[in-house]
């Protein structure tokens, strides 16, 4: 089994980097109750790829279409800024409905655009990703994005925590809450846009939610949540990967299944403790 896994070790490194970054950001996603913003951003990212492939097939768009990640990044960041600035909360539409509209619209747009694109892969790649196809070069790109993001979160942990936990009080103490939210959502969009290229919507969404939920269930402190989330994200990647290669299972769903089992186990442990 080990030798088989080693053949795909480059993909495993990539999966671990995605798991690490998404698990850290996922703590804020879960605590702030913006789980479906993560899903909507992932779908926007996939729509960006679809748009790039569609326009690229028509021979228009330049850099944005010759590198689908650029278009994906642009669309995802626009979505991140929109949600970071309040997600149209003043429009009278409930915030979760706005997220739902974005999710549905982006999902449909991604599929329609790719179906009419003359280049590109089958649309299910958006959902499942192609994590086994990751190379060391891909992982290097991912690291170049995630290391600065994680450093920003390490340095400004206190600020992100405060504006997430109690924005009104933060505002009265002079914090530019909207700017901090934009930075938080911006880092989220950045990681999602890059992770989406390889991991697909389902796996990115999994890493944004399940490890953090496991952390929330098992840990009694913020440091504990981050630690458990990171460890469970990494462990699920490792085990899911180890099971998927020899048993010929799709890697993404195998990792998600492992994350789900961990979250359920954490829930059982938490219930027994009470």
């Amino acid at each position: 089994m080990l030798s088989t896994i080693l053949i795909f070790r480059e993909a495993l490194y990539g999966a671990l980097v995605i798991a690490l970054a998404c698990s850290v950001l996922g703590v804020y996603v879960v605590l702030r109750r913006i789980v479906f913003v993560g899903a909507a951003l992932a779908q926007l990212s996939s729509a960006g790829i679809g748009l790039a492939l569609f326009l690229g097939g028509l021979g228009i768009g330049g850099v944005l279409t010759s590198h689908p990640v650029a278009m994906s990044l642009l669309i995802t960041m626009l979505g991140a800024l929109f949600f970071g600035a309040g997600g149209g909360s003043k429009s009278g539409v409930p915030p979760d409905a706005t997220i739902g509209v974005t999710y549905a619209g982006a999902a449909a747009a991604g599929i329609l655009l790719i179906s009419k694109a003359t280049t590109g892969e089958a649309h299910d790649i958006f959902l499942q990703g192609n994590i086994l196809g990751m190379t060391l070069a891909d992982t290097t790109v991912l690291l170049a994005v995630t290391i600065p993001v994680l450093l920003v979160h390490l340095v400004f942990y206190k600020e992100f925590l405060f504006v997430s936990f109690d924005r009104e009080t933060a505002r009265t103490m002079g914090y530019q809450v909207t700017r901090w939210n934009l930075l938080l959502y911006g880092t989220l969009g950045l990681v999602i846009a890059f992770a989406m290229q390889f991991a697909g919507v389902m796996l990115v969404f999994n890493f944004l939610v399940l490890p953090a939920v496991t952390g929330l269930l098992l840990a009694g402190s913020m440091a504990g949540i981050f630690t458990v989330a990171i460890l469970s994200g990494l462990l699920a990647s490792l085990i899911g990967f180890a099971l998927s290669v020899p048993f010929d299972l799709p890697s993404g769903p195998a990792i998600i299944a492992c994350s789900t089992v961990m979250a359920l186990a954490a829930w059982v442990v938490r219930s027994l403790k009470r």
């Binding site: 340095v155 400004f156 405060f162 936990f165 009104e168 933060a170 103490m173 402190s221 504990g224 949540i225």
Partner: peptide
């Protein structure tokens, strides 16, 4: 308005009152 889903100790929450004095980062 204070969200109790955050696993924060009382003393950690009280220290937030000094965050602007502590400084950015």
């Amino acid at each position: 308005s204070v969200d109790s889903v955050y696993p924060l100790q009382v003393v950690e929450i009280v220290m937030m009152g000094r965050y602007d004095r502590i400084g950015l980062g």
